[in-house]
Design a protein around this nucleic acid. Structure first.
Lengths: 205, 205
DNA sequence: CACAGATACTGCCCTGTGCAGTATACGAGA
DNA sequence: TCTCGTATACTGCACAGGGCAGTATCTGTG
């Protein structure tokens, strides 16, 4: 049946297994739901979300059932007893460290290759994005829950997402204020970088 | 010489091009420096950092010079005029949205597949990691700068990194406090999830 | 009845990761 | 002088993941 039942599953596998623990889903529903709920802390391309459930079946953690809507086929996945057990076991493993990709910050870090207008535009886009995300998150919080009996878990995780965005928003505003004092991207004029860094060095003490 | 001079470069390419704009580096130095400075907002495996400079040379954005330390060869990369121009042009492009991977949050979100002890352990590990990172960042801030004349850019970017970690640290402490009021991971008892969510829904207004 | 938008995927090529493997260089201590 | 640990300087391989294009059917609205 399957060659590698014992292969270590990826985080993406476990994330989908977590959704399957709530109820059975078709691949399409699973992909959409993953993008709605998991995208904030475990973003994955739709393409990937179509492949993973097959691996779960190979590993015996889920079963697939072929159904159809008229002439169009669809696959419904259901978690197995072994799948629930494996999910609970996974919760014990220490997680891989947090990692963030923030291309705009690369542009800020190398701002001295361009001019102040470019830097301010980058910061402005960061602000706009953060504002939009806070909006989206607060709308999510206002809506009735997709699964009753799981509101407490949303209420535990959502505040961090919102606060992360608020932190970015506040920082971008501060940064735009600071660079107004600069002469150019290579010359901050009288702006005191050292005192900012020294204050950070103190927070670690 | 090269077949795809016009291919769109990846963010990783531009990040390394940014480092090359500061001074010439050997591949090894470039890889180490990228992990020290860029890892916070653009993390990439060392393996990848060895491949990318070759693509930059193919695209005419850098030149490679073979040197040697005794019998051991090494390659020194230098940015070209065309490379500096391309880097400045890239600063104008809107950046791809921020994306974060946070496996521990997946474990928190699916905590109802396990017990309160597992959830608390996950939150405790998040706290420890955040504390260690704040420590590392504040040590970076305290050290003399690697390039003089670039302190202002570190002073602009570092505060966000520190504040992000502080936000995670604070949230994890709050979350541990909250779950002490829960009966189990599936039953929060009298804990009022709704009021937390309603407060978040208000922040977006 | 047409058409937009949702459903339900697959193939291809490229980027990126983890790990193992292969060397040499160099300084500190036995 | 020899050894050993650490830094230097990479490459190969298998697999995870992303972006995009393509294919086809279903359903509700005008």
């Amino acid at each position: 049946m399957s060659r590698c039942v014992m292969a270590r599953r990826s985080t993406t596998s476990y994330a989908l297994l977590g959704l399957l623990a709530l109820r059975p889903w078709t691949t399409y529903e699973l992909a959409k739901q993953a993008q709605r709920s998991l995208n904030w802390f475990w973003p994955r391309a739709e393409r990937k979300l179509y492949d993973e459930p097959k691996h779960l079946v190979d590993a015996g953690l889920a079963t697939a059932r072929s159904e159809s809507t008229g002439k169009r086929p669809r696959t419904v996945y259901t978690i197995t007893r072994s799948g629930r057990h494996e999910l609970a076991r996974w919760l014990d493993e220490p997680a891989v460290p947090r990692a963030g990709e923030f291309e705009a910050m690369v542009k800020v870090f190398f701002a001295d290759a361009g001019d102040l207008g470019q830097l301010d535009a980058t910061l402005a886009r960061i602000e706009t994005e953060a504002r939009e995300r806070i909006q989206a998150l607060s709308e999510m919080a206002g809506q009735p829950p997709l699964f009753h009996g799981r509101e407490h878990l949303s209420a535990l995780t959502l505040p961090l997402q919102v606060q992360q965005e608020a932190t970015v928003l506040e920082w971008a505003g501060w940064a735009r204020d600071q660079i107004r004092q600069w002469r150019s991207t290579t010359d901050p004029g009288g702006w005191d970088a050292r005192s900012v860094l020294d204050r950070l060095a103190d927070t670690g003490r």
